[in-house]
Design a protein around this nucleic acid. Structure first.
Length: 292
DNA sequence: TATATCTCCTGCGGGC
DNA sequence: TGCCCGCAGGAGATAT
């Protein structure tokens, strides 16, 4: 499942293999892959063809290819299963190929997405807080790997909210790049249960959570990202292997690496949440909206 | 306005 | 063997 480290691996691949290319043609093979581009496939293709890709950038789980001379960008979200593949143009179509951009010199940039949660869209570049970003990404907060990520301002936002810490970590307008896997891992490292309320946590506890998120994502990036199956691969089709280093996510009933207690799986936000019942005690008074 | 929940989608695995 | 159902989950839409 692509989260920030996986998206960064893909961005680096695009930077290496795609930047400098000019788009010769685009085929939209599944309309859902461009559902966020309201004007439709013909408009999207028309705004890409003939443009030169001059940069590959990222914020959180969004990445974008900056186009010249139009000063627009192809904004890409991988969703749950999206892949950006650089392939020879005569390579057979992937089963779930959704978009194909022909880059010339016998090369394709392909968007392959089994579950179709991801997609492409064209956006105008705007400046937000001194940083150029596509307008459709303007609402996304800086991620913990951003050099201008401001821990203290995020702590201030969190302390001003009345919601559960895991819910806040998954809110991309508060801090971006954190998905279900790394939220669980960060909370395990910080020894904090995901249903603890943000306004009940201390400043040091919140800083620890954010630092843990940064640490776990750094570690994942060093190893090429997390992958549980073939759904996540980098631009060359190689899987990451950070899943071997996970301490909480997906480890139901396995002993906690710190205390030996069996990792517990709970339903949270209509998905699974993993934690150690000893290292990460749940709050005494649970939120009335949280079942269990 | 802030927060919570629902919905989209496909493939896999388990149960019958 | 084949059918049905639950599960996985990011983010926008909708509800509270």
């Amino acid at each position: 499942m692509p989260e920030l480290p996986e998206v960064e691996v893909v961005r680096r691949g695009l930077e290496k293999f795609v930047v400098g290319s000019t788009v010769e043609s685009v085929d939209i093979l599944h309309p859902r892959a461009i559902r966020r581009h309201v004007p439709g496939p013909a408009d999207l293709a028309g705004r890409i063809v003939g443009q030169r890709i001059c940069a590959a950038e990222r914020r959180g789980k969004y990445l974008w290819l900056v186009l010249e001379p139009s000063a627009t960008a192809i904004v890409v979200h991988l969703g749950m299963s999206g892949q950006m593949l650089v392939q020879p143009e005569d390579a057979p179509d992937e089963k779930h190929l959704r978009i194909r951009a022909r880059l010339g010199a016998g090369t394709d940039l392909r968007f392959v997405d089994q579950r179709t949660f991801g997609g492409w869209a064209i956006a105008e570049m705007v400046e937000v807080d001194g940083t150029p970003v596509p307008d459709s990404v303007a609402h996304i907060a800086r991620d913990p790997m951003d050099p201008r990520f401001d821990v203290e301002s995020v702590v201030k936002v969190l302390r001003g909210k009345h919601t559960e810490i895991k819910r806040a970590l998954l809110d991309q307008t508060v801090v971006s790049g954190v998905g279900n896997i790394y939220a669980d891992e960060a909370l395990w490292r910080a020894r904090i249960h995901g249903t603890r309320l943000t306004d009940k946590l201390t400043g040091p506890q919140l800083r620890q959570v954010l630092a843990s998120a940064r640490e776990v994502m750094d570690a994942a990036l060093d190893q090429g990202g997390t992958s549980f199956d073939a759904l996540y691969v980098n631009v060359n089709g190689e899987s990451g292997y950070f899943d071997r280093s996970l301490h909480a996510y997906g480890r139901e009933d396995e002993p906690c690496d710190r205390c030996g207690a069996p990792i517990r799986r709970e339903k949270f936000m209509n998905r699974s949440s993993y934690s150690c019942p000893v290292c990460q005690p749940p709050p005494r008074r649970r939120s009335p909206r949280t079942p269990g």
